[in-house]
């Protein structure tokens, strides 16, 4: 009897786990508002998986895919700030809370989990919105990242003033996996 329960439970868990969604379109923008020069970059190459049955979510963001207006900014971003050869990816893994998959329209949600940037992992709580559209899900969020928190150092010699906090905006569309 006990083993039967186990089997049923684990089967049902596996079944529930099949409710996975993956990225169809992704956009991550970061924006640094500084006195000399505003710096903005866009990344369309991020990947994410969202398991609606458990709320588990994971993001993987290739650092080298951030596109800047100036090539030199991109080079400095990769070489000096994010050290992308050492830390090629940023990741987030955690859980989205406070959503109902039956609800129409945008609903406010919170993602709680671990954000890794520049090799430093921190526990974060990020608020955003989810919206079910037909068989797709649209996720939006905007939050601030303090460079110091992730040991991103701005070289003293640099004339470009980089803001201590950068704004990160995400806009993902998910489709069933």
């Amino acid at each position: 009897m006990k083993s039967l329960t186990l089997i049923i439970v684990s089967l049902s868990i596996h079944f529930v786990h099949a409710q996975k969604f993956t990225t169809e379109k992704s956009l991550i923008v970061f924006y640094s508002d500084a006195s000399i020069e505003d710096i903005k970059a866009e990344n369309h190459q991020s990947m994410s998986i969202f398991d609606t049955s458990t709320g588990q979510i994971a993001f993987s963001i290739p650092i080298k895919e951030f596109q800047f207006e100036k090539s030199l900014m991109k080079e400095h971003f990769n070489e000096k700030y994010l050290e992308s050869e050492k830390y090629p990816k940023s990741t987030f893994q955690g859980r989205v809370e406070g959503y109902q998959s039956t609800l129409k329209g945008q609903q406010p949600v919170t993602a709680i989990g671990k954000l890794t940037i520049h090799g430093v992992t921190r526990d974060v709580e990020i608020s955003g919105t989810l919206e079910w559209r037909d068989n797709k899900i649209v996720a939006n969020s905007s939050f601030k990242v303090r460079l110091e928190d992730y040991k991103i150092k701005v070289p003293q010699l640099l004339w470009q003033n980089i803001a201590e906090e950068v704004e990160v905006t995400i806009d993902f569309t998910y489709k069933p996996l």
């Binding site: 186990l6 439970v9 684990s10 868990i13 786990h17 990947m47 994410s48 998986i49 398991d51 458990t54 588990q56 979510i57 994971a58 993001f59 993987s60 990741t91 893994q93 955690g94 859980r95």
Partner: peptide
């Protein structure tokens, strides 16, 4: 226990799956 362990497992899984 099973549910929990499965959940933890699933979380790691998700990043691996992404890769």
């Amino acid at each position: 226990l099973i549910v929990c362990s499965n959940d933890v497992y699933a979380q790691d899984d998700l990043l691996n799956e992404l890769e």
